[in-house]
Structures are given as structure tokens and as C-alpha cells.
Amino acid sequence: MKKKMLAVLLAGTMAASMTACGGSNSNSSAETTAAAAKEEASESAEKTGEAAPSKDASEFKIGLITDVGGVNDGSFNQSSWEGLERAGEELGVTVNYLESATDADYAPNMETFVDEDYDLIISVGYMLADATRTAAEANPDTKFAIIDDSSIDLPNVTSLIFHAEQASYLVGYVAGLTTKTNNIGFVVGMTNETMNQFGYGYYAGAKDANPDITVQQFNANSFADSATGKTMANTAITNGADIVFQAAGATGLGVIEACQEAGVYAIGVDSDQSSIAPNTVLTSAMKRVDNAVYNAVEELIDGSLEGGVQSFDLAAGGVDIAPSQDLIAPEVIDAVNEVKEKIVSGEIEVPADKESFEAKYGDVYQLD
């Protein structure tokens, strides 16, 4: 049943709500949904031999802790919260979030949800890894999930990992075929093994589509500094870039603003960011963190949520380019669709680390 639920979820549309609120849904529709979910879970448990859920969905409390980008970053954190909001609305669970203004807030936010007896605490991003590990070790009866980190090997921690390099390859391919100057930019929020996957994929896709292309690379060293993002994008534009991709959380909002003011294209990240600047955002490298969060809640309810790594790639619908494609030329869309098929089939292997990247493209990625 777990695989079936995941397939259904990954085919769904993203929730549009940006309302920051937490709480259980007590209306009859939510109660009916919760009852149905429990009944289905019980039937599945009888067939598989797993333990049936010990309480109604409405009794579960799930909390989400953002990184410093905040819940309205238009990207990673917001998409995570939208997935959890949808779980609250459709499954009848109680949901809430706590924002982290600085990294000093991670541990206190964890303690708050633990003290309030939340059943599942979801950490948004690898920056919360240390705080999540500490809280999980101290509270083995509480379940935790963390997005984009697989370093925690504990039975009560589920890692939700996305193949960001595949989505980035696709938007890089779009950029390589769309640029008029053969010059594009990339602004990353911070460099590390996880974030560099965006850069490896973007450069690889752009280079495969356009061998003559130049990729300017910038490290903002922050996910919450839109002013720095805007400055770096303006530098790239001044140096000839007519498309700038950002993988930088709230910092990336400054990149989009700079591109909008200069009349060049921006590429969004994590969610479909076209609504921010419809005539500017060419496409977005999407990670369906909303669906992964929703799926984790369903597994919590039916008793199947386990520690370990859950991986979301292009084949499973976990990553993709945004569905809004009005600014992309039809022939480019066709070319990208062909590339997608080759990635899924394994004909194209997108580099996800320094070794595989340099083996094909040489030492040209500057942000390690």
C-alpha cells in the first residue's frame, strides 16, 4: 500500500495555500477522511501482518521546523509546509510549524515540539541535522523526519532525499538551448555535498545542450539574504548572463528580482516559482518535498513510517521541471522531454558528486 500511496501522491498537484496556521480539522469531512484512513490502514495491517494504528488520525500531531529561510521563502520551506497543510486538511491530523530565525533556534524549536508530545517532527534541510540527531537520540519514542540529509542513522529518523541533480540538469538543458548570449549564471545558497548537486546538474545539462556555453557561479553563503542574491545576479547579468538559476532559498528571491528588473530570465528552485514573476521565471527545478512530507504523514498514521532513507528521483516523480512552460520554446520542451526519458532509462547518468562530474566535464565547477 505504501508504494501505491506514494505513486498517487507524486502524481498530485501542489497545494496552493500559503497560510501559516496549525491545527486539526474537526469538520465532518476531515473526520470522515480520518476514519477512512484508519479503516484502510487496519485492513492493510491484517494483510501484511503489520501493527494496526493505535489511534485516530485526528489524534496525531505533526510539527515542521523551517531553516532560516522561513516558511514564506517561496521555495523549500514553503513547499514543505504546503505538503503538511494538505495533510492536515485531507487526513485530519493536527499540524503546526516553527520558524528558525537563526541556527540557534533549531534546538529550542525541537524541544518545544517534543515537550508538546508531537508524534512526528519534520526538519526542513540539512542545516538542522545536528539538532535533529540530538533530539532523536534523547527521545527515541518520538519520530523525526529530515529533508535533504541522510547522515542520521537512528531507527526513529526518516531521511527524505531528492535527486536534485536530475531536476537541475533539466533546467540547465533548457538554459543551454534558450540563451542568446551563450552565458548563464548560477547562485547557490551555500556550498556542500547536498547543494553542489544543483550546480553539477545545472552545469552538466547546460553543457550537454550547448558546448559553447559559459556558466558563471556564485556562492551567497546564506539562504536568507535576498540583497546578496540580487547583487550576485546583477554581477552575472553585467558579465553577460541572460539566464540565472538560483538554488538559494529566500536568497533566491533577490536573484529573481534582479532578473526581472534587467529583463532577463531567472530559473526557480524547489517549487514552481513562476507566480513570483510570471514573465521572468523561465522554469523551475522542482523537488516535490510537499508530496514527500504528505507521504510521511500517511505512513505515520498507518504505522509504516520507518527509520532510514527514502529516495525521490525523476522516475518516481520526486523531481522534475515545473509544469508552467509558457516561456519555453516548443522545440526546447520536446528536447527536454527526450532527455527526461534518457535519464529515466539510464542512458544519461547525471553527475551527483565531484568525482563523477569531473570525470566527464573536468575541473570546471568552482564552488566546492
Rank of each mutant, 00 (worst) to 15 (best):
M195W: 11
L120E: 00
G176W: 13
N96I: 01
I161C: 14
T191M: 15
S17K: 07
N219K: 10
D117E: 11
T231M: 08
N183D: 11
P330K: 04
E46N: 11
P155M: 04
L154Y: 01
Y361P: 08
G229H: 06
E257D: 15
N279H: 03
A20P: 09
A292D: 06
C21L: 14
P211Y: 10
A233T: 11
N182R: 01
L9V: 06
G205K: 07
A209D: 02
M195I: 15
A138L: 12
I333S: 08
L154F: 00
K143P: 01
E165G: 10
V289G: 08
V293K: 05
Y106F: 14
I343P: 02
Q166W: 07
N239L: 14
I267T: 10
A175V: 13
A167Y: 03
Y169F: 11
T158M: 01
V336D: 03
I276S: 12
E306G: 06
I243Q: 01
C259H: 10
A136G: 13
D212T: 07
A247K: 06
Y202L: 15
S311F: 11
G185E: 06
A16M: 14
E338Q: 12
F60Q: 00
A329K: 15
P211W: 09
I328R: 05
I122K: 02
A37Q: 10
L170R: 10
P53Q: 04
N295T: 02
G307L: 04
F186V: 13
P140V: 12
G362W: 14
N156T: 02
G303D: 06
Y169G: 01
D313E: 05
G199W: 15
V339F: 08
D119Y: 00
N219P: 08
D208A: 07
V114N: 04
S17P: 04
G263A: 12
V297D: 00
A220T: 03
S159K: 10
L6S: 05
Q273P: 09
G362E: 13
I321E: 04
T48A: 09
K61P: 03
L10E: 01
D290I: 04
A11N: 12
A220L: 03
P140E: 13
G307Y: 05
L64K: 03
I237L: 14
S150Q: 13
V68M: 13
I343K: 02
G205T: 07
T231Y: 02
S274L: 05
G83Q: 10
V244N: 00
P211Q: 12
T32H: 09
K3T: 14
T66V: 08
G172T: 11
A359I: 12
E50M: 12
T214K: 15
T251C: 02
L120N: 00
T238N: 15
L6Q: 11
L64T: 03
A45G: 15
A41V: 04
